[in-house]
């Protein structure tokens, strides 16, 4: 099963929100949906969920238009928390489970199971308003996935979570993925996308900048690779010989150098060894953050 967006466009009175967007999310993928604020991510998500309809283009899940699919196909965690504040945690999760198509009994069983897994059993009977921000976010996550949908869309799922709960969610997401759930992750936390996602789509100003495997995006930015070395010796001689070296003095007195001018690691090592002693040598891939900024700033 694949989620496919084909030439999707949507405009509001303020202008185009999404323009000619096409990408595919493979079955069972952990897929990142990235873009700066106002890029069109939320509009894209709402169209996938059939909350709003596109002006043109097609959205399909397993070759079937999303407007024809039962809504329980999807699970959705919105960026802004949307829970009934005066409703008890377990009752609320079970209610959304039922609304998503589970029988009352299955909804209760799933709620009990997931409440334990998310470590909020002690809060089961409390109203949501009495919970901390982080625990509310956990409830919101359970509301999104209690019916265990084949496609789960998470908009900033790590928002408000402390490091312990952050790790808990980081454990659960791959579990869901291993169970066959396709997960679309929209977040500004690029480190999370880097560690979790196999593929991503990058949107800026309503247009698609890139869609595909993360490795392919990195290859597109190979020129941003840096060779780094830690050197001690004739520093002036080395700097005269090799152009465009960034330098930084380390705390132990060794000089840390990095090159982004395309000089290979071997070549740089030969230069360094001619002038002194080499302690470390590595090739560093550009971070997703650097690539993101590069892509966004590159646009006119």
């Amino acid at each position: 099963m694949t989620l496919e967006l084909t030439a999707v466009s949507k405009s509001f009175s303020t202008g185009p929100a999404v323009s000619d967007l096409s990408f595919a999310v493979p079955r069972g993928a952990m897929f990142g949906l990235l873009g700066p604020n106002g890029a069109g991510k939320t509009t894209t998500i709402r169209m996938i969920l059939d909350i709003i309809r596109p002006d043109s283009g097609a959205l399909a899940w397993d070759a079937e238009p999303v407007i024809d699919l039962p809504r329980l196909t999807f699970g959705y965690l919105p960026e802004e928390r949307g829970l009934y504040p005066d409703m008890a945690v377990a009752e609320q999760i079970a209610f959304f489970g039922e609304v998503s198509g589970l029988s009352r009994r299955d909804a209760r069983d799933a709620t009990t199971r997931w409440i334990e897994r998310m470590d909020i059993s002690e809060h089961a009977d409390k109203p949501v308003a009495a919970l901390s921000k982080g625990n509310q976010q956990k409830v919101q996550f359970l509301v999104a996935m209690v019916h265990e949908p084949p496609l789960l869309i998470l908009d900033e799922p790590f928002s408000g979570l402390d490091p312990v709960n952050h790790e808990l969610l980081l454990d659960i997401l791959p579990e869901l993925q291993a169970a066959g759930t396709t997960i679309v992750l929209s977040t500004h936390d690029l480190e999370q996308v880097e560690s979790l996602c196999d593929e991503l789509a990058l949107i800026n100003r309503a247009e698609l900048v890139f869609a595909g495997p993360v490795t392919q995006l990195r290859a597109r930015h190979a020129d941003r690779r840096r060779v780094q070395l830690v050197f001690r010796g004739d520093e002036a001689g080395l700097l005269d010989e090799v152009d465009e070296l960034d330098t930084r003095r380390g705390p132990d007195g060794w000089l840390e150098l990095s090159s982004t001018n395309g000089t290979s690691a071997d070549e740089l090592a030969r230069h360094a060894l001619r002038h002194g002693e080499l302690r470390e040598l590595s090739t560093v891939e550009p971070s997703l953050r650097e690539i993101f900024l590069d892509e966004i700033l590159r646009m006119p």
Binding site: I51, R71, F74, P78, G82, L83, V99, S100, V143
Partner: peptide, 11 residues
């Protein structure tokens, strides 16, 4: 309270 968005995604 933004519950509507969660609801409209389901019903």
């Amino acid at each position: 309270s933004r519950v509507t968005e969660v609801m409209i995604a389901r019903v």
